[in-house]
Amino acid sequence: MTPSDIIRPENLVYAKPRLMNDVPMHYCPGCSHGVVHKLIAAVIDEMGMAERTIGISPVGCAVFAFKYIDIDWQEAAHGRAPALATACKRLWPDRLVFTYQGDGDIACIGTGEALHTLNRGDNVTLIFVNNAIYGMTGGQMAPTTLLGQKTVTCPYGRDPKLHGYPLRLADLAARLDGTAYVTRQSVDTPAAIRKAKKAVRKAFEYSMEGRGSNLIEFVSTCSSGWKLSPEKANAWMRQYMFEHYPTGDLKDVPASKNNN
């Protein structure tokens, strides 16, 4: 039997999204970025928006997101992706516009741009991958690093007296009048992935319906940065991250209540 004997339409329960490029990914085993990419690619394709989407990639591990999803992209400066998104959406109102950012990008150097884009109610979606660490630059402390968590720049654990507290950006975003949908998701189990995909779809649809801005935080793993195996990283995330960053919707404004 050859693979083509087995892979027949009637047997097919899973396929790589059409918009995922056939190139090796640079993400580490166990990293959440790849799964989040896949959800975005699938939703854009399912919405029929491949030719009307502009993605804004960040500075961080996802800096090369443009290599993986077959759409038009702009590669922003560190933290500035939401400003690019504002301009793209205002100048091209019928486009699906989203940013893809890590915690350092969206919740530290670019907090200002993120909160103001959300608060303006620009009809875009900010995808926020929160792995509680700076992955790309080698595991330094992030604004979202948990208290007591060790990183190379807080080797004795994050101490609030020295480093302040882990920032809950999604909670802030939910309090802003410009946001339509704010949710925290994870991609650690098949069930979570299915739910997360629905969240991406909802956010993208809200942005196209002009309901306002949307933020999806993905509580994520960084096995390399955390120095854990992929499996242990998932367990660590569930045990510690979910406590500080509980998953679920923080805000979902019904269409009728929207004043944008």
Partner: peptide, 21 residues
């Protein structure tokens, strides 16, 4: 389109994004 941005950092990055399209 006319946007009063939140800073000059944002303005120039709006320019980068808009010019890129």
């Amino acid at each position: 389109v006319v946007v009063q941005a939140e800073s000059e950092v944002a303005s120039i990055n709006m320019l980068y994004g808009g010019g890129g399209t």
